[in-house]
Computed example of a mutant assay.
Amino acid sequence: MEPAPGLERLAELVDRFAGGDVEITLRREGEPDGVSPVVGLAVYRIVQEALTNVVKHSGARHAAVSVVRRDGRLTVEVVDDGPSATPPASGGFGPAGMRERAAAAGGRIDYGPLPGGGYRVRAELPARGDNGGERP
């Protein structure tokens, strides 16, 4: 049985979505060492659902994924340049599922259209999970 995906497989995930009609970039800042498996899986699944929505529903030409670790926290963003509209749930995990993932890892998430167009999903998570002891 293969271990659950996490931060180490984000580039592979982004590559699977790239190459179609949407150009996707990935930016990482900070060391991923010591990130709890729960948080790593939450980040992976949040990015997976956000990119699914970008590709299937947004009409975007570009999307950017960023994962920044700073002061014991991970900030994850997926931003696209599609028309300013709320994408429908993909029938999969959806916005409610992303919120549940973030909460289960001790974090929070917000998402919505951007004023000048596009859409953003942004999650903030403790790098070591709810019980990990690393505090901002």
Rank of each mutant, 00 (worst) to 15 (best):
D130C: 11
F17T: 02
R28Q: 11
G30D: 01
D15V: 05
F93W: 12
A50F: 04
A42Q: 13
V35H: 06
L51V: 00
L26W: 03
S84G: 14
R69E: 06
S58E: 01
V121W: 15
L125F: 03
G107C: 10
P37G: 08
D130G: 14
A127I: 03
V54Y: 02
A89F: 10
E124C: 06
G106M: 08
S36Y: 03
N131P: 08
L51W: 03
G91T: 02
T25L: 04
V55N: 10
G133K: 04
L41Q: 15
G94L: 01
G91E: 03
M98V: 00
P95S: 09
E2H: 13
L74F: 01
V47S: 12
G91W: 02
G112V: 00
A18C: 03
R128N: 10
P88M: 04
G97D: 01
P113Q: 13
V65E: 10
E124V: 09
A18S: 13
N53W: 00
E2A: 15
V55K: 13
E8K: 14
A104G: 14
R122E: 13
V39R: 12
E100F: 06
G112E: 07
P113D: 11
L74Q: 07
A50E: 09
A89Y: 12
G112S: 06
G92A: 01
V47Q: 12
T52I: 03
A123T: 01
R73Y: 02
A105W: 04
R9Y: 09
V54H: 04
G40Y: 07
E77W: 05
V65L: 07
S84F: 06
E29V: 00
G106S: 10
L26P: 03
G94D: 03
R128G: 11
A11D: 15
D81N: 13
G112T: 05
R73L: 05
V65T: 07
D71S: 10
E2T: 14
D80S: 07
V121E: 12
D130A: 15
E31Y: 04
Y111S: 14
E100Y: 07
R70I: 00
E100D: 12
V67C: 02
G82E: 09
A85P: 07
L41Y: 15
A96E: 14
P95M: 04
E29T: 05
D33Y: 02
G107Q: 13
L10D: 13
A64E: 14
Y44S: 12
G116Q: 15
T25Q: 11
D21L: 13
V47T: 09
L13D: 08
A96M: 06
S58C: 00
L74E: 06
G129R: 11
P83W: 05
G106K: 11
G116F: 12
N131S: 15
L74V: 02
H57G: 08
G92T: 01
L125V: 01
A64P: 05
R61N: 10
G94I: 00
V76A: 03
V54Q: 06
E49A: 04
S36R: 05
A42N: 12
A42E: 13
G117W: 03
G129K: 11
L7A: 06
V35I: 00
G112C: 05
R99A: 11
P37Q: 09
G129L: 04
V39W: 09
M98D: 01
G116D: 15
G129D: 09
V79T: 15
R28C: 01
P5F: 08
V22A: 08
V79D: 14
G132R: 12
L51F: 02
G91M: 01
L74R: 08
A96H: 10
D80F: 02
N131H: 15
I46A: 09
